[in-house]
Design a protein around this nucleic acid. Structure first.
Lengths: 200, 200
DNA sequence: GTCTATAGTATGATAGAC
DNA sequence: GTCTATCATACTATAGAC
């Protein structure tokens, strides 16, 4: 019974997540979710307090798992550059494996963060920024990364380029998640200009 | 009289644009817009048919001007790499000068494009893609750009990294639009890795 | 666990007075 | 050009039957 309820909850969450990801949290109605699940909107409230509870559970559990992965990488023995690549790769893997959650985070976190209930989004965002900028500064110190760039700007560049791929990347497309990650990381590290050529 | 009406319309459009940019098109209500303008919601309909008309005028006129700029660059005599830099710089300038419109485009174009009225968004998106990928292929042919990357993937990377900056860039901040553009373009072309260092 | 029925509110838009 | 007043619809959420 507890198992069946849990399973039904998760199935409804999955359905809600797909709709939130595709249409946005605000323009997905509880009726949309119920329709997709084959039940009536009132029945959803047997499982969840509110629409906000649904998106809350989706984002919170996803982010917890993601940060566990990040923390493990940061705590490791690799060089700053290697850790940076590993974190980027883990993020692309999240896009591949948890597409809905990343899309919701990318599209609706700014709006949701305005509410007290979602204040953890702001805290984790700050933690994420700290992690990336520490890594970037360590990479500059170690000589692996360019010292002539603004660290905060590079952080935003990295963060955005990694996550914005959720807008077009679809699991099962012509490029695998790993291939996308490899090319993205290659561009980030070495740029798109030819290294021996007419320029520079 | 025609002038006064036109001015009032533009003022209301500007107000609506700021709200659409900050809260998103769908969660900005006509009452929000009217409140910001100091009038009642019904009075808005003296100036505009509908909420959609407002966002339509904002996006359409902005995109027309943007493409005029792009077309002039493409028609010029520069090398592919130089044109690519010029297009990127023009895009950052658009973020600086037409922040609301870029933000609306970035956040709501996907939703709006589902409606017939906004089908031009899809057409212009295709034109934009054609322009960038032509430029990238020309740059590879000329030897200025790396030949080992997937052109469609690089296009998406470029497009997204350029426009997503609207999420955090604010006119009048510590970095000017030109400074941001210069660093972004430098990262895009040459990457963040140190060129003489322990790696590669 | 789902349905019926509905409360209470917010929304986009309209008609006509001023 | 704005206001008053309002319509029709859609929304989140609830109460109680089955």
């Amino acid at each position: 019974m507890a198992v069946a309820e849990s399973t039904r909850r998760e199935e409804l969450l999955r359905i809600a997540g797909q709709l939130f990801a595709r249409k946005g949290f605000r323009s997905t109605t509880v009726r949309d979710i119920a329709d997709s699940a084959g039940i009536l909107s009132g029945s959803l409230y047997h499982h969840f307090d509110s629409k906000e509870t649904m998106v809350d559970e989706l984002l919170d559990s996803f982010q917890r798992r993601l940060f566990e992965t990040y923390d493990a990488i940061i705590a490791g023995e690799q060089s700053p550059r290697e850790k940076l690549v590993a974190v980027a790769r883990a993020s692309f893997d999240a896009i591949d494996q948890h597409h809905s959650e990343v899309a919701i985070f990318q599209n609706d976190a700014g709006y949701l963060a305005e509410f007290d209930r979602f204040s953890y989004l702001i805290e984790r965002n700050a933690r994420f920024q700290q992690m990336w900028t520490d890594l970037l500064r360590a990479g500059i110190t170690s000589g692996e990364l360019r010292a002539d760039l603004d660290v905060e700007l590079v952080y935003r560049f990295l963060r955005d380029t990694v996550w914005v791929a959720v807008r077009w990347y679809r699991p099962g497309g012509s490029l695998s998640g790993d291939e996308v990650a490899d090319q993205y990381i290659s561009i980030l590290l070495d740029g798109i200009a030819a290294t021996e050529g007419a320029t520079k």
